[in-house]
Design a protein around this nucleic acid. Structure first.
Length: 328
DNA sequence: TTTGTAACCGC
DNA sequence: CTTCAGGGGC
DNA sequence: GCGGTTACAAATCCCCTGAAG
């Protein structure tokens, strides 16, 4: 039986031999295997770690981060420079935040805390109007976008501060916090039947103009590999067949690529862990945070990564690095 | 949300 | 302004 | 009896608001 850490030398050798057969199309090692005895071979899934990241990209690149902070005030209170350091570390150009939980009246004080590390950056907020201390998204941008809009442009769906679109020369960045279907799935019908449809229509409209980078908390673990306990969560918000099929139909079948899953077809890479049960320490998580891109951008992806060691929220940051081509 | 437990099923 | 209980979300 | 599934109950976390001091 292989332990996750501290494999014995003999185990490592076994893994290398067997993993050679488990390498897939894109050349990544997708499974480690250890012969536990002469009869039985156990295969265990590989967990994503940042040492899978490719070498730093020289040459022009666009670096985008996305993080569900589960309250921006709290994140900044715990560590006022958390976001600034992230930006420095990743040389990020754009940062998309979800679940800021800000009210309009909180924005000024948050900007004041953020500003010292980000002098010339541009900040954009979309806060929930319907419910205080709930939802909310923000975009921080090194350069000034060509345009920035809030919401889907549909009154019914735009009361909870769930979406910001920032337009850049060669693409749109859509930062979204998709509605959770809630306990008892009381909002499942709204989520799947109403929001997802309007959202897909909105994305189609944008895509007709220029490529789209869609990021944020999509509140859906798409496949079994995206959740630690698929069997027991089939009726849980975020893993119902309805949500998962909607994800396929409204996003993937409409031309978006799930960049993480395309690059790492069989790697477990959660981005959310429940606070309550110490889930993070045992990696009992869900993959809810994504970068989906229009097909036209798929070839420009240099790195799609998670930063599971970054604390401060029940989600970890995720990131995308694109080659920059032309002068855009 | 996750976990534990009991009840239940088919083999 | 600070603390606390209650409620909610996930 | 065994493995798998279902259903229910209990416990756990963090952060918000609003009331009270």
């Amino acid at each position: 039986m292989a332990s996750k850490r501290g494999k014995r030398k003999a185990d490592v050798i076994d893994i290398q031999v067997i993993a050679a057969e488990a390498v897939t199309q894109n050349g990544s090692i997708v499974a480690s295997a250890v012969a536990s005895d002469a009869q039985k071979i156990t295969v265990e899934k590989v967990e994503y770690t940042t040492d899978m990241r490719p070498p730093r990209l020289d040459g022009p690149a666009d670096r985008i981060l996305s993080w569900n902070v589960a309250s921006l005030r709290s994140t900044l209170k715990k560590d006022a420079d958390a976001i600034g350091r992230l930006i420095d570390m990743e040389e990020a150009d754009i940062v998309c935040l979800q679940e800021t939980k800000l009210k309009d009246s909180d924005v000024e004080s948050c900007e004041k805390i953020l500003r010292p590390g980000l002098h010339d950056w541009h900040f954009y907020f979309n806060n929930s109007q319907a419910k205080k201390g709930y939802s909310g998204v923000a975009v921080l941008s090194r350069t000034k976008p060509l345009s920035v809009t809030n919401g889907l442009g549909v009154e019914d769906h735009d009361q909870e501060g769930r979406l910001i679109t920032a337009e850049y020369p060669s693409y749109y960045v859509v930062n979204v916090y998709v509605p959770n279907s809630g306990e008892g799935l009381k909002r499942l019908d709204y989520r799947v039947g109403s929001w997802d449809v309007a959202f897909a229509d909105y994305l189609a409209g944008l895509s007709a103009k220029k490529p789209v980078i869609l990021t944020g908390d999509l509140n859906c673990a798409h496949q079994e590999i995206d959740i630690h306990d698929p069997k027991r969560n089939l009726k849980s918000a975020g893993f119902t067949v309805e949500e998962r099929e909607s994800f396929s139909a409204q996003l993937l079948q409409r031309g978006f690529k799930d960049t993480f899953r395309e690059r790492y077809p069989d790697v477990v890479g959660y981005t959310y862990w429940n606070y309550r049960t110490g889930a993070r320490a045992r990696n009992r998580g869900w993959r809810l945070d994504y970068f989906l891109v229009s097909e036209a951008l798929a070839g420009r992806v240099h790195d799609i990564f998670h930063l599971p060691d970054i604390q401060g929220s029940d989600h970890c940051p995720v990131g995308l690095i694109l080659h920059r081509v032309g002068e855009s």
